[in-house]
Design a protein around this nucleic acid. Sequence first.
DNA 1: TTGTACGCGTTATCAA
DNA 2: TTGATAACGCGTACAA
Lengths: 341, 341
Amino acid sequence: MNKPEIPTLDDVAKEARVSTATVSRCLNSPDQVSTKTRDKVLKVVKDLGYTPNFGAQALAAKRTNTFGAIVPTMNNAIFAAGLQAFQEELGHNGATLLLASSSYNSQAEEEQIRSLVSRGADGLLLIGTQRSDQIYSFLDDRQIPFVIAWSYEENKRRSCVGFDNLKASYELTLRAISLGHKKFAIISAPTHSNDRAKNRVMGIHKALKDNGINFQNVQSIECEYSIGNGFESFKTLMQVADRPTIVMCGNDVLAAGAVKMAHEMGLKIPDDISITGFDDIELASVIEPALTTVHVRHKKMGMLAAQVLLKQVDDKSYRENIKLDTWIVEGKSLAKPRSFL
Amino acid sequence: MNKPEIPTLDDVAKEARVSTATVSRCLNSPDQVSTKTRDKVLKVVKDLGYTPNFGAQALAAKRTNTFGAIVPTMNNAIFAAGLQAFQEELGHNGATLLLASSSYNSQAEEEQIRSLVSRGADGLLLIGTQRSDQIYSFLDDRQIPFVIAWSYEENKRRSCVGFDNLKASYELTLRAISLGHKKFAIISAPTHSNDRAKNRVMGIHKALKDNGINFQNVQSIECEYSIGNGFESFKTLMQVADRPTIVMCGNDVLAAGAVKMAHEMGLKIPDDISITGFDDIELASVIEPALTTVHVRHKKMGMLAAQVLLKQVDDKSYRENIKLDTWIVEGKSLAKPRSFL
DNA sequence: TTGTACGCGTTATCAA
DNA sequence: TTGATAACGCGTACAA
């Protein structure tokens, strides 16, 4: 009962009576080996249950086949579907995912980027564009391939797979305006370090401006995405003399909280107040009334991000900017304001 | 403009005029080095921006400081909170998380276990107890530390951090019975490869049996966790002559779908039909009416799982079985059946 | 097509 | 307290 030894390339080589080089080739570039020896070697590999040692492989080949992703949060479902698709696409290509979450803290994100890189990540998935020049040049210096998701930017130097947050938000706002809304309020994620949130707010402002509605005195609350925060923020926004007729939320989670508070306050949605979301996560369809929100193609985004990233590993100079379309999902939470009836 | 060179231990050693061994010690066991040389070395480390090469470290030290987790799904929030806590606790200890999702496919899970192990995971987090003997002995043979979460079992040979799914479900059922319910229906995840789902169903059956209610002809539908499946299944369950007065769902996601269908069918909850969930994810509190469900201490579970796993890495023979408590969360979706009024 | 032999960047043992 | 030096297991020129 001696402790189980994990077989190495050497063991396989000896057993198969070939050199380690041949075994290595059988595994990594099978066509350079004669069918006969290959079959022989692969049988031994199987018999011994050989699996390559990761560290040694990484050291010698200078690649790990692992990719890092840093998401702002795993606490709600915003990134879940995209991440799952990303992971699956990596899996199809024999790669695995290293995951970290930054809790929307850019300091933490930087540390995690460095950590994942030093852990040998072949490439990274990052959310949004907003981070220090320092960390971008760290990545550039080390030639670490990375893809930015959830945001879109025209940028020859970086790859991104995302969508136009500003435009999507602009269009949703236009819809509200066309229904007769004039008094807006906003619940958003903190905009200073979150370009998606910033663009979503800017989209609203732009639409208002373009339609001659003063956006300077639109009440706006910034808070992290959580149902509880949406809940509280909505209450605050309603405690004013001249109530808004619509509260636009930076994402569905906030909107869900807002809806809940509206119920508690006895406000009818959408008669007394309209509420909109963003992201179209499953949550949006279950709450009552279903949210009018913006559909984002999360799965497609995750899958494409993985594909772009894999291409960049093969060709370090490869860059691609992909803009996915979004569309408004009609729920029951947005309608004409009562004053307009 | 030559390509940027990544500094190695050697570079640091030369620059600081010490041996590589000393540099290594400064980083890994600082107290074995004199304060003076340590300061000198660490300064150079910082100046050069040195970070250890992961592959080399893994190869030489036989450990990677990365841990693998395989969750059944990332598509909904069931595992999100627990996973985030797990990841954070690892982070506090300088370790990172390798994540894979099996899509509730045990075949896929096995492959991913092997993949993560061959990628040098120091330990694994697994969900539930149900998997082949083969894969368990694979882990034992290689002496890979692992912790099972979300399930609890008395087992000296394995560690687990979970809760008693059967008991929690049993108690929720008792509550329903005490309110007067006699006609039950169940929507559950597939029970053949999911011990949590199986135990939850068994808990219901046991409670019924213990109270003299025939559980043989309780209608039961098995489907994967999704709002859509809950939606459809609920409809099916209601298309019978003798409708149940309560539908107990294997988790909140299914329950949310059931609630949605109840609305569409014009059924009042809980007057016409009671619906219960399980897990107490955020979703449970936002839907209307709020779900009566079972609270699971996801965060605590994730954190403890990480701690147990880390202990097992230090001491391969360490084992711990932790049972967390659960409790019923009172929503508005469970009440006396109308027939009982 | 196959084998030899070196290098990858650390850690750890043993001496000094 | 420090320094030489031998592993660690694999990939890959280069040679045969």
